[in-house]
Amino acid sequence: MTDLISLAVIGASVILLLVLTLWKRKSPTNLRDIPALIRLYHALGLSIEDGTRLHISLGRGGLLDARGGSALAGLAMLRHIAEQTSVSDKPVIASAGNPAIGLLTQDTLQSGYNAAGVSELYAPSSGRVTGLSPFGYATGAMNISQNENVSANIFIGHLGAEAALLADAADRANVIVIGASDDLVGQSALFASSQDSLIGEELFAVGAYLGAGVSHRASLTLQDLLRWLVIVALLGGAAAKLLGVI
């Protein structure tokens, strides 16, 4: 029964995603203001203008576990930012705490440079694996914020409590910190220690807000629809339980 429900949800999501993608091509989407993403947008422009760089920390989530979703969302954002900042004097640096994501980081950066038509400017050293344990990753990534002329540090991916160390190091170097994590501990650490943080599913909205493509806007609308479905199911279940139906 559970398998059938899961299959139905995935099947319906696939169909809805395709329909919404076709629909969103023609109609614009109105997005509510999220302060962290407005700041991110400004930080992007600022880094190109004043010759500083962005540091994107993709966390230590891998592809073979449940934390892969946030890493993939981070890679989608990185792809877009790499293309936008490829002509900057100081190109973006991305760090990861998982080797597979580290490899994909390099591949994604290269794709961004190719798409911008400046493939010769791509340097493999801009995608780095800074450590394999949570604190190992954090200490390696802290070093980038402090020593590589970074103006904004964007955390997006699976980060736990170590995010507070990263945010603190960036703060001491007067670097703007924008944080998003799929981990509850990481989210609270980032809420307390960054200027702006993204809560919950806002992490997956970054692509749509940065204009990464129609599929991102469609998936954001799909998320909203699924959320309403969950709300109706929860309220319906509670009401049915109250009435003794189930």
Binding site: S13, V14, L72, A73, S111, L184, F204, L226
Partner: peptide, 30 residues
């Protein structure tokens, strides 16, 4: 916490579907 986790799960689902159908290609595609 449950609300946030449900939101994250929905976001991961839609992101996974985008990758599954090639809309996002973090493996060398432009």
């Amino acid at each position: 916490a449950r609300g946030i986790i449900i939101g994250v799960a929905l976001g991961a689902l839609t992101t996974g579907l985008r990758v599954l159908f090639g809309a996002d290609r973090p493996y060398g595609g432009n």
